[in-house]
Amino acid sequence: MVIVSGSIQDYNVISSQYTPDSIQMKAYKILSSSERAYAYDSFEQLDFELGMRSNTVKASIDLDRSSFSFRVFRKSYCNPVFWERTNEGGFRLKENAVPSDAINDIYKNSSKYGTECATAMVIVFYKGLLDTYPEVLFNELFKSIYLMDWQQLDANIDINSYIDVIDYLPGDCRYFKNPDVDPVTPEWQGENVIDLSDGYYYGHGIGIGTREKMIRVLNEYRKAGSTTTAYLLDMATRPNYMQLFYLKAYSI
């Protein structure tokens, strides 16, 4: 159920705000039919989260359609106009680069970039936020972005993982674990994916597919003779939507 400003919301009132097939609507349906109570201080706060989730899904699909490559950290590469590649294979925003331009460049000049799956997740979260925020605010808040799996994440976006989540929503990052991965390919120890809704996921390196596809591909990278299958963890990784909303609200 969804509670806004202390009152349980009428499903029809809120759902009338969104088109039936939109990601916002799909996420809202899950929230409103849940046994858990999801409390928001205002409709604007709820709308912000739903909007950013929608933009994150779009950012995932766009990245999948781009020429952004899968590379292990040792062989990662980036556009040096905006990013400095560190010795460990991460991308650090250059001092004189505009954060929004640098994130957009990953989509615009995607063939100049290649990295692993976790970094791709951080990129789509940043892009989802950039498309939700006013550009000026984004540039003010994210002056020192570092892109390398989940390391050194900016405290403003405050991405955290939650276990045993009751409801999984479009825009959540999920993780397929491959416990018996072949030692030669540690990059396939698991796959971070974005929940695109309707049972589809985007994982960098595998592409868009169902749970079964993700598991099938990961299983191909198991050590010889293994019968232990890859599986989807009961875990969701999310930005702190409430904090991001208030950072925006107080900036205006």
């Binding site: 692993e116 799956c117 976790a118 799996d149 989940w150 390391q151 994440l153 991405i159 955290n160 993982s161 993780y175 674990k177 416990p179 120890q189 698991g190 971070n192 963890l233 875990m235 990784t237």
Partner: peptide, 10 residues
């Protein structure tokens, strides 16, 4: 637990 740096921030 099997948790790794690929899987999550902390």
């Amino acid at each position: 637990t099997g948790e790794s740096f690929q899987q999550k921030a902390n």
